[in-house]
């Protein structure tokens, strides 16, 4: 696979267009890809399982530290394009930090008291893409807050990269949630 993020221009409108196109390209590449790389899939699965564990365990700071500084997290509403359609959110690292901050803010009424979640990770497929790793996996989230339970299913696409010591980090994440177009309770808790 060769989607290559490196071509993104450094500044301005072209950079924004490039970032957005990169997300769309990742989504398209993963959906069209052939059989995954077995060894890479195993190591990526270990990392994605840890991501689920950090989020379910409310170790949000640990989760945030697994992102690269240029990270982007996109939750499209349907089959949209980030330059043309609303998203549930499209966050850079800074706004992800705000999302994490709200998780423990006592005046974030929709998140207080906090929810318990369990993320059930399906088969993880991974492909090399230059120095990065692209992955696809199905995800089932059960969310329980107070006496309310919500179940969500999603396909998640990760672009992972290796930092200096060789550990995997999240560079891009796309969460495709069909139920978004059907109407759901507030998702201010979703990471």
């Amino acid at each position: 696979m060769n989607v290559a993020l490196a071509a993104t221009p450094p500044t301005g409108l072209a950079r924004v267009r490039g970032l957005y196109q990169g997300l769309v390209d990742d989504r398209a590449a993963v959906i069209a890809a052939g059989a995954a790389d077995a060894a890479l899939s195993t190591s990526a699965a270990t990392f994605l399982a840890a991501e689920c564990r950090w989020l379910d365990g409310r170790s949000f700071d640990r989760w945030l530290s697994a992102w690269t500084d240029d990270g982007l997290y996109w939750v499209p509403l349907a089959h949209g394009h980030p330059a043309e359609d609303q998203a549930l959110f499209l966050d850079d690292r800074r706004r992800l930090g705000e999302r994490v901050w709200r998780m423990s803010d006592a005046s974030a009424w929709a998140l207080t008291p906090g929810a318990d979640t369990v993320r059930l990770l399906g088969t993880v497929e991974a492909w090399p893409d230059g120095d990065d790793v692209l992955t696809s996996s199905a995800l089932h989230i059960t969310y329980c807050r107070g006496r309310r339970v919500l179940a969500l299913a999603a396909r998640q696409i990760h672009r992972l990269t290796r930092d200096e010591p060789g550990a995997l980090r999240i560079r891009r994440k796309i969460l495709l949630i069909p139920e978004l177009t059907a109407g759901l309770p507030q998702l201010g808790w979703l990471l």
Binding site: L13, V16, P82, A83, D85, Q86, A87, L88, F89, L90, R95, E98, R99, R102, A108, W109, A110, L111, P185, Q186, L187, G188, W189
Partner: peptide, 26 residues
């Protein structure tokens, strides 16, 4: 300008993320 509409895409998801959930909770 195109930039204004690209900004609009990101501006309104801000309140939907950090404001609207608290309204609905109320």
């Amino acid at each position: 300008p195109e930039e204004i509409n690209l900004l609009r895409l990101r501006v309104d998801e801000d309140f939907v993320s950090f404001g609207t959930p608290d309204d609905l909770e109320m």
